[in-house]
Each structure stands twice: as structure tokens, then as C-alpha cells.
């Protein structure tokens, strides 16, 4: 379980495109390289959007799960 290592959590539930990505981009800036950020989102487009965001920024999605319409992403800052 990576929960213990998560440096920051971001609740983007209820927010629509592109706000989960935008808020994640803002939040990740406050972390240091290697730190983990946990993001919760309900936007169904988020799964593909986070993959695209990860590809362009190089911040890695290390964990991703879905539970009753809530998507959870754990992202490691580059």
C-alpha cells in the first residue's frame, strides 16, 4: 500500500474537464521530485486525460483504480 508515502491529496470529485487536470498540474508543483500525489476524480474522461497528461508532462501515474464512479490516481512527480 502506497498510502503511507502520499505527500499530498487532491479532491477533484465533482469537477469537470479540464479542472481535474488543471488542479493536478497546480498541486504537483508544490511537491518535490519523487513525491506522490493522490487525486480523486469523478469525471469519466479523467482516465484517458490523466494518461495524456502523464505522457506530456512526464509525471508518472503509478496507481489507478475506480470504485463506484470515483477514480483514484497516484502520481509521482517527475
Amino acid at each position: 500500500m502506497t498510502t503511507a508515502l502520499i505527500a499530498q491529496k487532491l479532491d477533484a470529485r465533482g469537477l469537470n474537464c479540464p479542472m481535474p487536470i488543471v488542479k493536478t498540474a497546480i498541486a504537483i508543483k508544490s511537491l518535490t521530485a519523487g513525491d506522490l500525489l493522490e487525486v480523486l476524480a469523478t469525471d469519466p474522461g479523467a482516465v484517458k486525460d490523466f494518461a495524456a497528461w502523464s505522457k506530456s508532462t512526464g509525471n508518472e501515474v503509478v496507481e489507478q483504480s475506480a470504485d463506484q464512479g470515483v477514480y483514484r490516481f497516484v502520481i509521482r512527480r517527475k
Binding site: P18, I21, A25, A52, W53, T57
Partner: peptide, 12 residues
């Protein structure tokens, strides 16, 4: 605005 802010967030 949607596309511009997303590009910014994606580091593009």
C-alpha cells in the same frame, strides 16, 4: 479558454 488552460496544465 478550455484548450489554452489544458495546454498550460500539460506543460505544452
Amino acid at each position: 479558454m478550455l484548450l489554452a488552460s489544458t495546454a498550460g496544465a500539460m506543460g505544452i
